[in-house]
Every structure is written in structure tokens, then in C-alpha cells.
Amino acid sequence: MHRSGTTMAWNVFKFCTVLRGLGSIMILLVLGVVGVTYYAVVFTNYGPALFDGGLHSFIAVVVLILFHFLLVLLLWSYFTVVLTDSGTVPPNWKPASDEERGEVDPLNESEFDGLQPDLSSQRIRYCWKCNQFKPPRCHHCSVCGRCVLKMDHHCVWVVNCVGALNYKYFLLFLFYTFLETSLVTLALFSHFLAFFSDEEIPGTTATLATTFLSFVLNLAFALSVFGFLIMHVSLVSANTTTIEVFGTDKRYWFIPAYSDEDLRRIPALQGLEFPSNPDFDSEEF
């Protein structure tokens, strides 16, 4: 039994090590998909259509403007998720109340005196690996090797944990990825159908292959991201209010940033307190 447990721990360690090593590869993969898509949309299909005149030129202008606008927001959101720390527990942090059980009475200082990590009190959450107390919804990430505030999951695509301080940016990344990939799918749909017709398709083998690949990749991402986006929107609406996640200043809702006032006033954005949505009935679960 002991040997089996050791083997399992070793396998988990190797798995976490592999996930850490995927970091730069996943970023390059994302940039590679963006590059292939950009080449197919701008250089192969809609860039040349600008000089066709008439309706074709008008459609090309609209597609290119929307494509670049969404691409900027997508990349802005993506690198903000990648570069923003998801949130760590402040040094020497101690819980002031048991929010996860709905108890708001503060813990007296005497309750911490002589406190042992193995106590049976359900009012206190403790991380054995980090040797520290854990705020509500805080979990330990084996890949990052630390506790993450309001940890949702470790995402290999963004090479980071998705937690309290970058959750909004992650949702915006999903949102703009869905819009961008849906736009590309619609824009390249007629070009994709041309592959199965008897008409002769203009272009070199490389440009045709790029168009075909871009359509397939963007369609796959649009379908997968849509399901993921719906799931996260449902989680947000069930567990926290929109204000707690996106801030009170509506001018900042659709960009990966917060106003200084929101960062100062909203406790949830600091990753330590999470009031629940009053309209959510927890008894349903």
C-alpha cells in the first residue's frame, strides 16, 4: 500500500511538471492559430477583396474592421490573464468569520491562540502544503505550488491559474474568442464550401490550405468556447453578482481592466471576501 501511494504521488508530480512545461508551448500555439487565421482572413481572402469594388469591397471593409477590433480585445484579454497573478493569500492572514457556512460572528483572538492545523473545527480552513489558513473559496494549486484565491481551475491555455484577480479577464477572453472565431467561421464559410464544389478555386495550394485549416480551427474553437462560456456565466450568476466580478463602473465591463474606485471599494476584487448573490437559492444544490 505504501509503495502504491508513493507511485501515485510521483505520477501526480510528473503530471504537474508537464503542465508547467507546457507554458510557452501553449502561448506559441495560441499565437500560431491567430497567425494562420490572420493570414487567411486578411492576406488571402478579404484583403484582396478590397479592390474588387461594389458590394464585395464593402463586405471586405466591414469584415476587416470587425476582425481587427475583436482581435485586439481578444489578445488584450488573453495576455492580461497570462500576466496577471490570480491572487495569493496575504502573509499571516487569519479568518475573521466563517463566510462559507454563513456565520458572520468574528473569530476571537483566543480562538487562534495555540491553534493546531489538525483541529476538527469546520470553521477554519487550513492548507497543509502551504502551512497557512485559507480564505473562503481558496484552493491549493498543485501546478502553481501555492494557494490561489477563489481558484476556479489551472488553465493550460493561459498558462496560469484562473482565480480572484484575473477571473474577469478570463471571462472576457472566452467572450471575445467566441465572437472572433464565430466571425471568422461565418466569413470563411463560403470559401470553405467552395472546396466541395466543381468550380475552380483561385489561389495557390498554400493559401487554399490555410483557408481550409482556419475555417476548421475557428469552427472547433467557437463550438467548444461557447459551451465553456455558458458554463462560466452560469457559475457567475449563481454564486456572485455581476458587480462583484465586473465592477460597478460599466465603462470597464467589456475591457480587461477595473476602475481605481472599484479596486478600492469592492472586497470581492481583493480575493478575500465573496458575498453570495441574494437571488441564488443554495438549497437547490
Rank of each mutant, 00 (worst) to 15 (best):
P95A: 07
F246N: 12
L73A: 10
V81C: 04
N45H: 15
N108W: 14
N166T: 04
F173D: 07
D152F: 02
E284I: 02
L272D: 00
Y169I: 01
K134E: 15
T210Q: 01
K168A: 06
R265N: 09
S120M: 07
F178W: 14
V236L: 02
L188D: 07
E199P: 01
F175G: 10
R123M: 14
F280A: 03
V42D: 05
T7K: 13
S282K: 09
I255T: 07
G21C: 12
V159F: 11
L71V: 13
W128I: 05
D281S: 00
S224F: 15
V236Y: 00
G203F: 06
V158A: 11
T204D: 08
C147A: 03
L171A: 06
E200G: 07
K94L: 10
L31W: 03
D85R: 02
C144A: 04
F280H: 08
L223K: 03
A9I: 03
P48S: 12
A194G: 01
L107H: 14
W76T: 14
L171R: 03
E273M: 03
T211N: 04
P48D: 10
S237F: 09
S120E: 08
S142E: 06
T84V: 12
C130I: 03
D113S: 07
F58Y: 09
K150R: 10
F15S: 15
F195T: 05
H140L: 04
S197C: 05
P135A: 15
L272T: 02
F280D: 00
F133S: 13
E244I: 05
T207N: 02
V162Y: 02
P90Y: 10
S86K: 12
R146A: 11
T211I: 07
A40E: 01
E103V: 05
V30L: 03
V30I: 03
W128L: 12
G53V: 10
F254S: 08
S4P: 01
C147K: 03
A222M: 07
I124H: 13
L223I: 11
A268C: 13
R137N: 05
S142H: 08
F15P: 04
I124G: 08
C16T: 12
G5V: 07
G32I: 04
T211Y: 00
V82M: 08
V104F: 06
V81S: 00
A60L: 15
P91H: 04
T241V: 03
L73G: 12
W10F: 10
T177C: 15
I255F: 05
V30Y: 05
P95Q: 10
D113T: 10
G5H: 09
Y167N: 12
T88E: 08
T185Q: 14
P278H: 03
Y252S: 04
G247Y: 01
L75Y: 13
G163P: 02
V12A: 14
